[in-house]
Design a protein around this nucleic acid. Sequence first.
DNA 1: GTCTATAGTTCGATAGAC
DNA 2: GTCTATCGAACTATAGAC
Lengths: 199, 199
Amino acid sequence: MGSRNTRERVLAAAGRLFRLQGYAGTGLKQIVSESGAPYGSIYHFFPNGKEQLAHEVIRTSGPEYGRLVLMLLNSRADPLAALEFAFRQAAEDLAGTDYADACPIATIALEVANTSETLRVATAEVFADWVDGATAWFGRFVPGDEQAKMLAFAMISMLEGAFVLSRAARSTDPLLAAGKAIVDLTGNVMRQSNVSGRP
Amino acid sequence: MGSRNTRERVLAAAGRLFRLQGYAGTGLKQIVSESGAPYGSIYHFFPNGKEQLAHEVIRTSGPEYGRLVLMLLNSRADPLAALEFAFRQAAEDLAGTDYADACPIATIALEVANTSETLRVATAEVFADWVDGATAWFGRFVPGDEQAKMLAFAMISMLEGAFVLSRAARSTDPLLAAGKAIVDLTGNVMRQSNVSGRP
DNA sequence: GTCTATAGTTCGATAGAC
DNA sequence: GTCTATCGAACTATAGAC
């Protein structure tokens, strides 16, 4: 049966459209139209309608994007080179997709923060997992969980914020500046911990 | 005549609702309902309808928020204390308004980045003005326009991104961590420029 | 079980009463 | 000029044919 296939095509189309137009700005008709599925499929696979569909988009594309970023970070042995590479890659992906492929859940997160408790919690859990993963990654290079967590918050906030500015300006400058900033910040934290005292 | 008054009440209600629910998620009927204005007032004051209304919201609340942040930064002589104060104040404002009062145009910016060229350009211009203002502010403490501009991008990106995470988690932790990060980063840049060479 | 047709509501926008 | 009533087109959700 193409069931499983249809379900995933609907999810993929919904994810793409939510990223591009937001949650409220995307209609179910447009989703089935783009995925080539009949309208009834939505309520067959997602009985709770649009909210359940968005919930599954958040819980699939969110962790998926987190794994992608971690993979970029782990592709370089030097942490500073890895950070620089990850942000440059994010910038190239963004510019190469007509400034569409940024964070898959940020627009939804802002839209639903005060309108749907269910979806807000789902986005919060995704971000929390990202912070945990990034904290573990930074923990390999800086001592102390507080400093690693601070760098994790800084990196993710910087990435999310730079996505807002870069998409608005249709320029990779904010993302590249954000990459330089997190590289500088991380380098300074590493340097401070390697040197025990001051001359 | 209460005309001018009605127009501003509509603008205020629209700004409030766009921040809380986004652009696509807010209906014109809800805006006139909350502002107490008759429905026809929208098309009387904003002949181009919803898009023109959003355009004016962006071009009024955007610069207004930029001035607020610059005022917070200028309220302390020490730049690091000023940065720490501004981010702490943003965190308190957010928590004190049920996590509603974050950036007035970020949600709209993400929603319209690929759907309305007119509104995208409007948000881009607001962000560009913020970056210019912040670059001038940082320029008072670090030498070189490139470094000041990098810090300006970093500060604004960090603020915007931390707003996303803090609103989703209903926690001020991301904003406070972002504040600590930009303080550290700025302090390091200032220190590096005060010391001419390395031993 | 898969899909179509449609109900019921709300949207942005406008015509026309006053 | 100010406002009300309503339009046509979306929307989400569902009932029911096949």
